[in-house]
Write a protein that binds this DNA or RNA. Structure first.
Ligand SMILES: [Zn+2]
Length: 299
DNA sequence: CAGATTTGACCAGA
DNA sequence: TCTGGTCAAATCTG
């Protein structure tokens, strides 16, 4: 009891990740459009693929034999181990650390941290470059539905209490689990409600770049039943959590590069490809969209 | 009591 | 080695 049971799903995650890298490598090889750095990227991808296999095998072998524990690697381990409280005797086994893969990452600068998804904080670090700590969140449905979306939030350093949120990965979870939730489409003007019978239909919203140009809505909504690629395309539903903040929305398409565009009212997230896929969920707001600052949110 | 934070330790990559 | 990302035990909260 209490011992960290080896998780075979971890191995599956690793294998899926390796498959993803292999797909990227395949794309890389089949598209000669990549101008430079292809060889280096390929090498990196191969390295990652091999690492994924290695991790998966390690996890699986750990499953097979409860604990082989080769930990002692020729280093004197007896240096007053009981320095601090060590509750469980077998505390060593700390699972493989899986680092984030920086695919599908985009950054949003907003006045609030809420984006309609349920996140679970799993870490916080002080960043040297900045004076505010950075918080790490993970989708609540990571273990329920295997959603691998994470985000990291950090307060912006320039005065205003804006939060820079970097989303990494897309949600594969469905908010209303099973049972075909009715999709409600909303217009930018007023929230129209259109119900789609098919539960497997997804709404794909494309918007051309709308910089400070006050183009009302140049969004083309098209729905298509997902019946195509079922291999690597993760069905995602970024959610349309209608922002109550009308004061503008800034976003940047790449983490690290800030091209702040101010959105009028209707856009909240943006994938780097100008293609957004929204699975809109029914969400309505009461009169007072006033978030209670239950915590000590000073200033 | 179950789920969410907190927080220090652990670990991977540059 | 330093820095940042993740884990997980302890703690908190409803
Ligand atoms: Zn999710």
């Amino acid at each position: 009891m209490g011992s960290v049971s080896a998780r075979p799903e971890r191995a599956i995650e690793e294998l899926v990740e390796g498959q993803e890298y292999a797909n990227q490598l395949q794309i890389l090889f089949r598209n000669p459009s990549s101008s430079q750095g292809t060889a280096h990227l390929s090498s990196a991808l191969i390295d990652k693929i091999l690492r994924s296999f290695d991790q998966a095998l390690a996890v699986l072998s750990s499953v097979e034999s409860a604990e082989v524990s080769l930990s002692h690697t020729a280093s004197n381990e007896d240096s007053s181990i009981n320095s601090s409280s060590r509750p469980p005797a077998t505390k060593g086994k700390r699972g493989c650390y899986k680092r984030k893969r920086s695919a599908d990452a985009w950054t949003v600068v907003s006045a609030t941290m809420e984006d309609g998804h349920a996140w679970r904080k799993y870490g916080q670090k002080e960043i040297l470059s900045s004076k505010h700590p950075r918080s790490y969140f993970r989708c609540t449905r990571k273990y329920d539905q295997g959603c691998g979306a994470i985000k990291q939030v950090q307060r912006m350093e320039d005065g205003s209490q804006m939060y820079r949120t970097t989303y990494i990965g897309t949600h594969t979870c469905t908010n209303h689990a099973f049972n075909a939730p009715p999709l409600i489409i909303t217009n930018s003007e007023s929230w129209e409600t259109g119900t789609v019978d098919n539960g497997d239909s997804e709404i794909l919203i494309k918007h051309h770049d709308q910089r400070s140009d006050p183009t009302p809505k140049s969004v083309a909504i098209r729905q298509e039943t997902k019946e195509e690629t079922s291999t690597d395309v993760t069905e995602l539903d970024c959610m349309m959590w209608k922002d109550l903040m009308g004061d503008g929305f800034e976003y940047c398409s790449e983490p690290g590069e800030m091209v702040c565009n101010v959105y009028p009212a209707c856009a909240e997230m943006s994938c780097p490809n100008f293609e957004l896929e929204f699975g809109i969920k029914p969400m309505k707001f009461e009169n007072d969209f006033e978030f209670d600052d239950s915590d000590e949110c000073e200033l």
